[in-house]
Design a protein around this nucleic acid. Sequence first.
DNA 1: CGACTAGTTGAGGCCAGTCAATGTTGGTGG
DNA 2: CCACCAACATTGACTGGCCTCAACTAGTCG
Lengths: 268, 268
Amino acid sequence: MAPIAKPVPLVPATAGPPAVRPAGVASPAAVISIRDLKTHCLTCSMRELCLPVGLTTDEMKQVDALVANRTKLKKNETLYRAGEPFHALFAIRIGSLKTTVLAEDGREQVAGYHMLGDIVGLDGIGTDRHGCEAIALEDTEVCVLPFVKIEDLARAMPALQRNLHQVMSREITRDQGVMLLLGSMRAEERLAVFLLNLADRYRRRGYSSTEYVLRMTREEIGSHLGLKLETVSRLFSRFQEEGLIQVQGRAVKLLDAGALKRIVGQRG
Amino acid sequence: MAPIAKPVPLVPATAGPPAVRPAGVASPAAVISIRDLKTHCLTCSMRELCLPVGLTTDEMKQVDALVANRTKLKKNETLYRAGEPFHALFAIRIGSLKTTVLAEDGREQVAGYHMLGDIVGLDGIGTDRHGCEAIALEDTEVCVLPFVKIEDLARAMPALQRNLHQVMSREITRDQGVMLLLGSMRAEERLAVFLLNLADRYRRRGYSSTEYVLRMTREEIGSHLGLKLETVSRLFSRFQEEGLIQVQGRAVKLLDAGALKRIVGQRG
DNA sequence: CGACTAGTTGAGGCCAGTCAATGTTGGTGG
DNA sequence: CCACCAACATTGACTGGCCTCAACTAGTCG
């Protein structure tokens, strides 16, 4: 079997001309940390997908200013746990996270698979406590956005307010899509939807939409799709036999996206 | 079998002293329509669960002022369809609605069962188009809340802003609960959760939490729970045999809520 | 009264789960 | 560098829970 290349990061299709940091900012090196030099909304590659999308340069600077700090997580480290007090949203700068909801009896369900530019923590706003837990799937870095500051700024900046509402609303829409998947699709449809969905999200981030590396185990994928890990594994094998995909561990290559789409919505 | 009484509306437990309309308001009858006399946030029985929860009298009046109008729906009438332009949220004043998401192939999934005081339409904010459709399960009346006006007012009124964010966040939390249910629970657990959840919601609205009337068909309940109508029907019968509930068509009486809770989270 | 919709119940089949054995991979330390 | 180990993944055989198909009943509304 031909080895599968790793996905190649590209410039996001939606990105404008490369943002240049204003001349004055970097000079007083003594008071600006290395971290500050590197990470600003203005220069972040995710600015076209993240909370500040569509803001003016000036507005973006203000959003930048409310980023309390940036947190680095190693693989399998927890960003927050269910029940912990909520105080901030998190924007993923680098890496990826899974969010899992827990039943009282300990059963857990992967509710979401979040990557670059996604905002997590939205479920904590309603109760002031996080309702699920977020765990890094690889080495990951997030911007910490204190929620009271976001609200303050949103009152003064309609564009930010609108973006915040859109982010929350899209999370609702996304969840409803998962509900449709879990409630009415058969196993092979679920996996096909999952693979196509990932392809689309990688594409929008400027990565290859036909080759990518899964960051989750078969068990986590299964949990996300309401399936057992053995079922996921069997389906990967079958899709490969049928020439729809090529799999090697977590490296996936979509060979026939059309056929995958046709699987979705098929009776038997 | 003893007939099951219809649920008796009570004063919501959270309600303060009965709100009295300011003296001057009702007098110029010529310019105040009958609708206006009846329906204001200040006097609405759902004000402790709906968007204006916790607002001052003055703030509530301002929210009141942005209610464009109120729409009456007969049973099975559609409030909005998937794909229609989004312009307003809707607060349920009387009655109940289901929201359904549709797959391309026509399959549909009941995403939510919404009652008095619930806000629907939140999924439309992100794309400016409604992502699902909302259909009245009985004769229903909703307050129409134009979203741009909500946003305008929310910028000036932190308490409203906070409430809006909480409403959206709780929708996310709720959806995650449904995902947990659909992804990891067996049929009998799903129905038990559904019945207990309804009991809790009726309780918070001041109705009986042990006797209520379902507004959905077996098929709709099944769709909501990711089951077929026959399975739902069988489970109702079995729960009744086991003395957990009493069912007569859509009238349900919970006889042993403890046992229902114990069903949830049981292996086999 | 007949047509229709909603609901109940039974028989049998199938998809995905369960249990179990084996293979593969990646990280660690000798 | 390689041996080792643990975690991850694959595959097979069997099981069982829910679906499918179908017949029948109970209300409801012209």
